[in-house]
Design a protein around this nucleic acid. Structure first.
Lengths: 244, 244
DNA sequence: ACTATACAATTGGTCAGTCCATTCAACCTT
DNA sequence: AAGGTTGAATGGACTGACCAATTGTATAGT
C-alpha cells in the first residue's frame, strides 16, 4: 500500500535526481554537469556518494566522464548500443541461444525489407549499393567479407526507418557475427550471398515490397541452413525449468 | 593500431574482473561475493574503488546488495528486464515514438501467436485462460483491465518460447501501457477486446497457428485504430535529421 | 614574431581511516 | 520455551588528503 518515500542509499537518490533531470531534457546532449565537488555541495552529500551515483549513470549510458580541466561529467547521446550490450550479456549467460536469434531475424528482417522498399531514401540506396560492391571486392580479393555482409542487413533495417528495428538488427547481427566469422564459407557461397543481396537491393530500389520481403526471407533461410544444421527434432525438447 | 592494455580506472578494472568471473560462471546465481573489505584487499585497491565497481555492476543488473551481517553482494539472476529498462530509457528520450512501437508489435505479435500455437505448454494455456477470465471480471466490475490486457499479450509471447520475443513484448507493452491507460475505452470496446483475446486463445489452444496469426494481427490493428488516429499521410513526412 | 617549454589551475581518480545503520544469530533472562 | 538483549559482521556514508591528467597561460628562447 505505502512505499518508502526515498531510496535507501544516498547515491541512489542522487542518481535518480540526475537521471530524471537528464531524461526531462534539463540538460542537452553534450552538456557538462557541475563538477563533483559542487554536486556534493548541492545535494548536501559527500563526494563519495556523488561519485557512486555518477558511476551508476555511466553504466546506464546516461553520462560519460573526462578528466582534466576541461573534463567533467557529460550527458551522453544514448543509442541502441545500450540495448545491444544488454543483449550480449544475456547471450553470454546463455539466456538466449543462437537459434532464438535466428528465429527472430526471420521474423523481422523480411518485414524490414518490405518497409525499406517504401521508405528508403536515395542515400540509403546509395549506401546499400556501395556496401554490396565493397563486399564483392572483398570476396574476390579473398578477404573476409563478414562485416560488409552484416552492414548490408543493418542498412536495410535502417532504411525501414524504425529505430527499434534498427536496434534489433544491430544487436542480433552483432551477436550472430561471432558465429558467422568462425565458419569459413567457400568462395562460391560468398558469391551467392552477394548475388542475393543484390537481388534484395534491386527489389527495394524498385519499391517492390513484397518481392523484397520474400527475397530477404529466402536469403536468411538459405544462410541459416548453411550456418547450423537444424535441431534434430525441429522443435524443442523442453524449456528452462525455472522461469521467474 | 594499439590499444591501452588496461582500463584507466581502477574501479573499471575491478568491475570488469568481477563481471567476467560472473559471466564465466565462476559464481552461481545467488552466490555471495567476498565482502567489500576483502575484495579491496584482494584487488589491492581501496574500498572506495571496490564500491564504485559494485555500484556499476548493480546498475548492470549483475549483482544486488544487502546490508547486515548476512548481507553482501550477490550474483543476480539476469533476465530480460535488463533489456527492457534500456528500451524504456531510449523511449523516454524520444528516440522512439509510439508509432514505432505499434509497427513493431504488428510485426512480432502475430508471429508470436503462431509460434505459441505450436509451442504453448498446458501451463501457458491455463495462465492465458485465467488472465482472460480475470480481465473479463475487471471489465464487468468497471475496474481498469489494462494490466490484464497487457498480461495476455505477454503470455502469448512467452508461450512462443523465445526469450527475445518475450523481451520485446514486455518492453513495448510496458511502454504502450502508459498511453493506453490514459484512454478510457468504453465498456463495449473492452468487451470486444476480451472476445478477441478469447478467439486468439482458442486458436492457440487448438494449435491453429495461421488462425492465431491472423486473429492477433486483426486484434492489434483494431486496437491501434482506436488508440491513435493514423498519421495523415499514412506514411512519414520525413525522418530525424541527424542519424548518428 | 613565433615557438617551445614550464607552470598553474581545474577536474576526476584514489586512498586510508573513521563512524553509522542494519541485520541476524547467539546468548541471556524470565 | 518465549522473548528480549547484545554484539559481530556487513554495507553505507563521510572526511580530508593527495595523485593524475588536461589544457590554458605565462615565460623563455630563438
Amino acid at each position: 500500500m505505502f512505499e518508502p518515500v526515498k531510496n535507501q542509499r544516498v547515491s541512489d537518490e542522487i542518481l535518480q535526481q540526475i537521471r530524471d533531470a537528464v531524461l526531462a531534457g534539463k540538460f542537452q546532449i553534450g552538456d557538462r554537469l557541475p563538477n563533483e565537488r559542487t554536486l556534493a555541495e548541492q545535494f548536501v552529500a559527500s563526494r563519495t556518494s556523488v561519485r557512486e551515483a555518477l558511476r551508476g549513470l555511466e553504466q546506464q549510458g546516461v553520462i560519460y566522464t573526462k578528466k582534466g580541466v576541461t573534463g567533467g561529467a557529460f550527458v551522453a547521446d544514448l543509442d541502441h548500443r545500450l540495448v545491444s550490450r544488454s543483449f550480449q550479456t544475456l547471450l553470454t549467460l546463455r539466456k538466449i541461444s543462437i537459434n532464438h536469434i535466428a528465429e527472430v531475424r526471420l521474423i523481422f528482417e523480411p518485414e524490414a525489407a518490405r518497409l525499406a522498399a517504401s521508405r528508403a531514401t536515395s542515400q540509403d540506396l546509395e549506401e546499400m549499393e556501395e556496401v554490396i560492391e565493397t563486399m564483392n571486392n572483398a570476396v574476390e580479393a579473398g578477404k573476409s567479407p563478414t562485416s560488409f555482409d552484416l552492414k548490408f542487413h543493418k542498412l536495410v533495417a535502417r532504411a525501414a526507418d524504425n529505430p527499434i528495428l534498427e536496434m534489433l538488427a544491430d544487436s542480433m547481427l552483432e551477436v550472430a557475427s561471432q558465429v558467422i566469422t568462425e565458419l569459413h564459407p567457400s568462395l562460391e557461397v560468398l558469391r551467392h550471398v552477394v548475388r542475393r543481396h543484390l537481388e534484395v537491393f534491386e527489389a527495394i530500389k524498385n519499391k517492390e515490397g513484397d518481392l523484397a520481403f520474400s527475397l530477404m526471407s529466402r536469403h536468411i533461410v538459405d544462410v541459416q541452413r548453411r550456418l547450423a544444421p537444424p535441431p534434430n527434432d525441429n522443435g524443442r525438447k523442453g524449456r528452462s525449468i525455472v522461469r521467474k
